[in-house]
Simulated assay, not measured.
Amino acid sequence: MNPQNKVLFAGDPHGNFKPLIAAVHKYKPEAVVLLGDYDLDIPLEVCLQEIVGLTQIWWIAGNHDFETPSKHKHLFDSALADKGLHLKVTEIAGLRIAGLGGIFLGRVWYPPQQPKWRGKQHYLHNQPVNSRHMAMSLKYKGAIWHDEFEALKTLRADILVTHEAPGSHRHGFDVISELAAAMGVKNIFHGHLHENYAGMVKNNIKVVGVADRAVADLMGNTLMNGS
């Protein structure tokens, strides 16, 4: 196996997993990391049943995965629920990979503005008494919260995978570049913006944007340009 293919990164499938499945059969990676926006109408493991057992499957969530209770359930209650990388560092194929799912939400935190809420508890404690017992809405669950983001900065990793883009993209966020620098990562892979590109942010951290349904290798080469 080519070492740069030992981990592959899959851009937003939006319900079409065929390019990822084809890439696994062709390149035989040790692991794949999915970058969000699955638009699931069946559980994730069913969509990927052709490659379950052939490779490790890891993921972060995107904004689409919080759009409806059904999409959320098919990811977070799936047989692959424990393969989520959000807010932690996991050793995968000998690499420390950190995950940051979700998106910045104006009513929670939209950098470079200051966060409206320090964290989920701060938000919940400031809701009307008669609604505090209610579950947090999916939209809020899919937000990036400031306190969790700051806690991630204290960890160390080789690679950071995000749904949102860092400052290398015109629609990206410098705080993600700063997060990567604080964690000592060498590479960032992100989805969300449906564009294959390579960029650079502070500390010579290489950024790879992976387009929807595309698959990239560890060097940032596009192996599959999904259709």
Rank of each mutant, 00 (worst) to 15 (best):
L124G: 05
G94D: 07
F149Y: 03
M136R: 14
L44F: 09
W59L: 05
A151I: 07
G53S: 12
A61S: 12
G119M: 03
P128S: 05
P128N: 09
H122D: 15
L54K: 15
G142P: 01
L40H: 00
Q121G: 10
K116F: 01
Y123A: 01
W59D: 07
Q114E: 12
Y123E: 04
E45K: 09
R156G: 11
A143H: 02
Y140R: 04
L80M: 01
V89F: 09
P111T: 01
W117H: 01
L155C: 11
Q56N: 11
V108E: 03
Q127V: 02
L100Y: 02
E50T: 07
K139E: 15
H64S: 15
F66N: 05
E150N: 11
H125I: 13
W109T: 00
I42N: 13
M134H: 09
N63L: 03
A79E: 08
G106E: 10
K71N: 13
H86I: 05
K83R: 09
G106C: 12
V46S: 15
A81I: 06
A93G: 12
I97T: 05
Q49V: 15
L48N: 03
T55R: 00
E91W: 08
Q114L: 14
D77Q: 14
G99I: 02
E91Q: 11
A135R: 10
A79D: 09
S70V: 15
P43D: 08
S78W: 04
V129Y: 13
L124I: 14
G94N: 02
A81P: 06
Y140P: 01
H133W: 13
W58C: 07
L105N: 06
L95F: 15
D77T: 11
L80H: 02
G106I: 07
A143G: 04
G94P: 15
G99F: 04
A81V: 07
L40Q: 04
D65H: 03
F104E: 00
